[in-house]
């Protein structure tokens, strides 16, 4: 168990609802959930969730910390905002699901080999490097995220699409060498680092 996870277990002493409210993005809005299930029924990938959103809210209230923090359910969120648009109680479901995924990761509990977890980290690392996303490098790192052999296979499989994209001038091989970005990437990285430090301090309960 990570130190932070241990610390949180001790701090909240079984009050998982309070833990979520304090530490998960828009977590306090889930207090409004009335278990109608519209969110679960509206999710385009709903059938793939081990626990769909309504169920997760119930588990949180019931203090089922392990169940919630060990599922990979919320990584199925496509950010379509159907649930938020339809929720009769204003629960910021999309954001709470994003927040739970992030919190799970911060606690060191993100499921191993969860493809969206891996991809979203690649995406973030890619954008922080230059302040803008380098689609070519992101695509290649995506191919290789499951190892070199798998990467070659994926790259070959997608070769036709890649060539078509290049022909349509929608993929630029020159992006491999440099590519676009903000003028001061080092400053951008410093800013992001500061934001991460402030957020980590808040979760750990330290004054910033």
């Amino acid at each position: 168990m990570s130190d932070l996870n241990q610390k949180m277990v001790e701090k909240y002493k079984g009050n998982f609802l309070q833990e979520v409210i304090n530490n998960v993005e828009e977590g306090e809005t889930m207090k409004m959930c009335m278990q109608c299930g519209v969110c679960s029924g509206s999710c385009p990938l709903g059938p793939h969730w081990e626990y769909p959103p309504q169920h997760i809210f119930m588990l949180i209230r019931a203090g089922k910390r392990d169940e919630v923090l060990n599922t990979d359910s919320f990584w199925n969120c496509t950010s379509c905002y159907n649930c938020i648009a339809r929720c009769p109680r204003g629960v910021q479901i999309t954001h709470v699901m994003h927040g739970l995924a992030r919190y799970q990761k911060v606690l060191g509990l993100a499921p191993k080999n969860q493809p969206t977890e891996k991809f979203s980290q690649l995406f973030w690392d890619n954008l922080v490097q230059k302040g803008r996303v380098n689609e070519l490098k992101l695509g290649l790192s995506l191919y290789f995220m499951n190892g070199f052999g798998e990467g070659i296979k994926t790259a070959l499989k997608n070769q036709k699409l890649g060539m078509a994209m290049m022909k349509a001038k929608r993929m630029n091989p020159a992006e491999m060498f440099g590519g676009h970005g903000v003028k001061d990437p080092a400053g951008f990285q410093k800013m992001v680092k500061k934001a991460h430090e402030l957020e980590a301090a808040r979760i750990a309960g330290e004054e910033s």
């Binding site: 950010s79 992030r102 934001a195």
Partner: peptide
């Protein structure tokens, strides 16, 4: 700069 798009939430967190 990039907005973080929809999948930026997990690597970025809320404040960043």
């Amino acid at each position: 700069n990039c907005c973080g798009a929809s999948v930026g939430y997990s690597g970025g967190g809320e404040l960043a």
